[in-house]
Amino acid sequence: MFLVMKNIFLHLQCMNLGTEILVLLKKELVLEWRQKYAISGILLYVLSTVFIVFVSARELDPSTWNSFFWIIILFASVNAITKSFVQEGGNRQLYYYSLVSPLAVIISKIVYNVGLLLLISILTFFTFGLFSGSPVQDLNQFWLAIFLGSLGFSITFTFISAIASKSNNSATLMAILGFPVVIPILLMLIKLSSSALGLETKGNIDNDILILIGIDFLLVGMSIILFPFLWRD
């Protein structure tokens, strides 16, 4: 494992931010591919949760469908992202510090996690559709909600996992630090997707989307500003 990473990092001398991010992204992908248990664990987690929901509820009306959908995605994202800083021990972190800039680390993690969460959301959506059929009326808007949701969850939880990884009981901290912070995003998402389900009128949906994007920008800005203070012990 370490050898692979060394190979990747060998051509890292004197690189700009863009290439650093790309290299780190490649590293994340390779790592994920090597340790298949992590990604398959998350996917299995989603499948079994969706299964439990439908076994216990049998039929869901659209508003319950909506809230179950987002709650499953919320918990799956916490589980998927917790490991992004925890799994890499102190020594390896130290190795990164000597090679790349903190910006590249946090941005690459966020981008990678957006991809991961998109995968999880799409899988959840299709399993939901498989079991109960989809009540979604405006599919484009629902995809937009899924994309913005992955973005927001990824930014928040990646940064929170960077904080939680510094402590010994990071799994607990991840939930209690992350859930209250993510609630504004979650509420806006449920609002957006419930109008895509036809449960709400589309009064000023553009405004909601703008607010969601605004919150995402705010949080990504804070992550980028604050991460350099956080990463070096």
Binding site: I163, P180, I183, P184, L218, L219, M222, S223, L226, L230
Partner: peptide
């Protein structure tokens, strides 16, 4: 670490208290 979290959480609190209740 708590200083970092404080800044992050306060920024996250702005939409919580001042944006969401208006939307």
């Amino acid at each position: 670490i708590s200083a970092v979290y404080n800044v992050f959480a306060c920024m996250a609190m702005i939409p919580l208290l001042f944006v969401i209740p208006r939307v």
